[in-house]
């Protein structure tokens, strides 16, 4: 489902990846670890094609970085759910509207949007907060809104960039429990983290970024 073929990514004359190869299958739960600044976020950005490889190719679903056009990128992103470390909520609209936005971009009908958003908010435990503005939410609540938004289009892949990085242990546990549930339903979860204690508690494939390449940690 996800393939990296000889990927090289260079920024400011410095290689982030060099001849990097990787395959991730459907439904996997993958932790991506590595030192701060090693390229975990760049790896995720290559997946949602916010940046393109300098050399080589990234394939995700039916999309290929070497052939994708600017107009196709939004359609790729609709098949992926993305949870950002800094939440990236739309600050000028409430919780319901934030989650609904991801459905509006697909042209979904009003009734479908309402029912799906209510279901997702219930799943992440935010039914009572649908009219709250992002500024009125705690970090954990914001992250749960971001997760609801990422899941509302039933993505085949969920990307999460340090989703527990800004959260206390209890909130982190809640978020990971949600990820587990999603993964059991067949969605591949790829989570960049530097919190190694998580790996001990939860099973999953661990990929380490080191020396501009990917290494499976056994």
């Amino acid at each position: 489902m996800i393939e990296f073929h000889n990927v090289r990514l260079t920024f400011a004359s410095q290689d982030i990846f060099d001849h990097a190869n990787l395959v991730i299958s459907e439904g996997e739960f993958v932790y991506v670890i590595g030192e701060t600044g090693i390229g975990k976020s760049s790896f995720l950005r290559l997946l949602y094609m916010d940046t393109l490889p300098t050399f080589g190719r990234v394939r995700i679903g039916g999309y290929d970085s070497s052939t994708i056009t600017r107009h196709q990128i939004p359609f790729l992103r609709r098949t992926i759910g993305i949870v950002f470390q800094d939440y990236r909520l739309l600050e000028d609209r409430n919780v319901f509207e934030n989650v609904a936005f991801a459905l509006h971009v697909t042209g979904a009908r009003h009734q479908i949007i309402a029912s799906k958003v209510h279901r997702l908010l219930a799943e992440v435990g935010l039914s009572s907060k649908e009219f709250a503005m992002p500024d009125d939410l705690s970090g954990g609540e914001k992250q749960r809104v971001a997760i609801a938004r990422a899941l509302v289009n039933d993505p085949v892949i969920l990307l999460a960039d340090e989703p527990t990085g800004n959260l206390d242990p209890a909130a982190s546990r809640d978020i990971l429990a949600i990820f587990d549930r999603i993964n059991k339903r067949g969605t591949a979860v790829i989570m960049a983290t530097h919190d190694y204690s998580l790996l001990a508690q939860r099973p999953g494939r661990v990929i380490k970024i080191q020396n501009c390449n990917f290494y499976d940690v056994v």
């Binding site: 992103r77 993305i82 936005f101 991801a102 509006h104 971009v105």
Partner: peptide
């Protein structure tokens, strides 16, 4: 002032036209 919002919209799959 809305540039971050616009960027987020793009990242969640909004087309330029939308």
């Amino acid at each position: 002032a809305k540039r971050h919002i616009i960027r987020t919209m793009k990242l969640v799959g909004a087309t330029s036209m939308l």
